[in-house]
């Protein structure tokens, strides 16, 4: 293993992570809900009476964030390298998988681990392992 020290950014990573944690605590204290991006969007498909407004608001906040981020600090536009076919296949897998598992990086990886949930630990180990394996196959072959 070679560590890429030039791209390693521990301070913004820790600070950004802390903001994500604060957002999760904020949603629990304000609305009593677990912060999970896949659940926010998945809960709108289909929308349910009395449940869609907070989800739509949180998603709107997520989408507005890059505009504010660019005013506050250096927030480069994402450089998405994947082509259309990979984007569609990847999106389908992420959407299907996170709903089947009832959570993603935020719901299981952050909130679940912070609650010391064994179920979320299992989910996190599974998606991390699959992520490492997929990148290994794509970049280094079998």
């Amino acid at each position: 293993m070679t560590i890429d020290w030039t791209h390693f950014t521990p301070v913004p990573a820790l600070t950004g992570g802390a903001l994500i944690g604060l957002a999760a605590v904020g949603l629990m204290l304000a609305n009593g809900r677990i912060l999970g991006a896949s659940g926010l969007l998945g809960g709108l498909i289909p929308p349910r009476a009395g449940d869609w407004r907070w989800r739509t608001q949180a998603i709107a906040g997520l989408i507005v964030a890059p505009f504010l981020a660019r005013l506050l600090f250096d927030a480069p536009s994402p450089a998405i390298a994947a082509g259309p076919a990979t984007l569609i296949a990847g999106g389908l897998l992420v959407g299907f998988g996170t709903r089947l598992a009832n959570g993603c990086t935020s719901g299981h990886g952050v909130c679940g681990l912070a609650r010391l949930s064994p179920r979320s630990l299992a989910a996190t180990l599974a998606f991390m392992a699959a992520g490492f394996a997929a990148v290994f196959v794509v970049r280094h072959g079998l």
Partner: peptide, 10 residues
């Protein structure tokens, strides 16, 4: 579900 998600993520 998490395994499928991880593949898409990767």
């Amino acid at each position: 579900g998490s395994l499928l998600f991880g593949v898409g993520w990767g």
